[in-house]
Amino acid sequence: MSLASPVRQKSGLALFWAVTFTTSWAFWLVAILLGGPPTSSPTVIPYLLGGFGPVIGAIVLRVHRARRREPAPAHAVSSRPSARWFWTVPLLVLASATVVAAALLAEVLGGPALNLTTGRNLIATVGGPVPFLVSMLIGGPLAEEPGWRGTAYPRLRSSMTRLRAGLLLGVVWAGWHLPLFFIPGTLQAGFGLLSWSGLLFILNVIPMALLTGYAYDRGGVPASIAVHFGVNTTIALLTINSPVTQALVLVVQAVVGFGLLGRRSLVRPPVTD
């Protein structure tokens, strides 16, 4: 199989960044100007569409690549082999476990106790477990992972180690969320950008990028979707909004992420022409 050169991969990455950020931020700017909560019409429409910016960027890049008959990135992971799906469930459990472990540790250290009441109320509000799980799967994992991990990550890997690619993508991914702090009614707006919770939300995206990057290397986009889904769903069910617990989630996921990457991540990948 022929592989794209690093120069072409960087060109494709620039196109992906441009489409993703322009699409997401444009829709979210409309949501900000409308001023209503993201769960009510008409704000809900641009709010939801903005979340699909990474997928739109991925689609545009794939169409662009197909028209120019360019090969796949060297580090792209195929999701077709059934063996790769083996990683999906274990990584989902691991992702959820990092959040649970942080919440338990916070309780031991005198922080907020585990409380499922708010999570149960949230499930009831959206109509039950199935609608809740579907909404958690679509709003984030399915809307973002084909772009961040399926498109951007392999191109970053053309000239970076897994660790550097994961960290850089984590920083970009964190910055992508910034407009959400200005849409009334979002989780981010509830935190406030200039608060400890807001800052920790931004920082927490970075170790999560390491976990999803590792998952992509093991099982492709389905595995990265599973990790993203596991973290988001567990955070929602346990109502992780205390700075103490958020900080411990950051620490636990950073330790696990660096541990999974290991020393092999420090080896610079070969450049394939």
Rank of each mutant, 00 (worst) to 15 (best):
G262S: 04
A97L: 15
L163Q: 07
L122Q: 09
L250R: 06
A209P: 05
Y153Q: 14
Q188G: 05
I202D: 00
F86T: 13
A14E: 02
F86L: 14
R155N: 14
M208K: 01
V89W: 15
N121P: 03
L3K: 13
H75Y: 11
P154S: 05
R155C: 11
G150L: 02
T20A: 09
T39K: 08
L180R: 00
S24D: 07
W25E: 11
R67V: 07
G230K: 09
S11M: 13
G175D: 03
G57W: 01
L156A: 05
G110W: 01
R155A: 08
A113H: 12
V271T: 13
G170E: 04
A209I: 11
G128C: 07
P46E: 09
P243I: 14
L168F: 06
S195I: 10
I32W: 08
F191S: 14
T43K: 13
A223F: 05
I183F: 03
D273N: 15
G127K: 06
S11I: 13
L187G: 06
G166A: 08
T233A: 11
M1I: 05
S82V: 15
T186L: 09
V227N: 15
F86M: 06
R157L: 14
L163Y: 07
L203G: 15
I183R: 03
G185D: 12
A72P: 00
G219Y: 12
I123M: 12
G36R: 14
S96V: 02
R157Y: 14
G213Q: 04
P42I: 04
T212S: 09
G198P: 15
L156H: 06
L210E: 08
R164T: 07
P71I: 01
P131L: 06
L116G: 06
E144G: 11
R263P: 00
S11G: 15
L34I: 10
S11H: 14
S78D: 12
G257K: 05
R162E: 12
N241D: 15
A18N: 05
T186M: 10
S78H: 01
F52K: 00
L194C: 02
A4W: 00
T234G: 03
S242R: 11
H228P: 13
L156G: 06
Y47N: 06
Y214T: 10
G57F: 01
T43H: 08
L199V: 15
T88K: 00
G198N: 03
P269F: 03
S82G: 13
G219D: 12
V231F: 08
L266W: 07
V30S: 08
A101Y: 01
E107Q: 15
A209G: 10
H75M: 07
L238A: 13
K10T: 13
V130N: 01
L248M: 14
V251T: 12
Q188H: 09
P71Y: 01
L142P: 05
L199D: 11
A106N: 02
W196R: 12
L33K: 13
L156S: 05
G219F: 14
G213T: 04
A18I: 11
V256F: 02
F258P: 03
S78F: 00
A76T: 08
A143Q: 13
G185A: 11
G198V: 04
A97Q: 01
T98C: 15
G150T: 05
G170C: 06
T117S: 12
L3I: 13
I45M: 06
S40K: 05
N121S: 11
P71Q: 02
R65V: 00
V134N: 10
L187F: 15
P270D: 07
E144R: 05
G198K: 01
G139L: 14
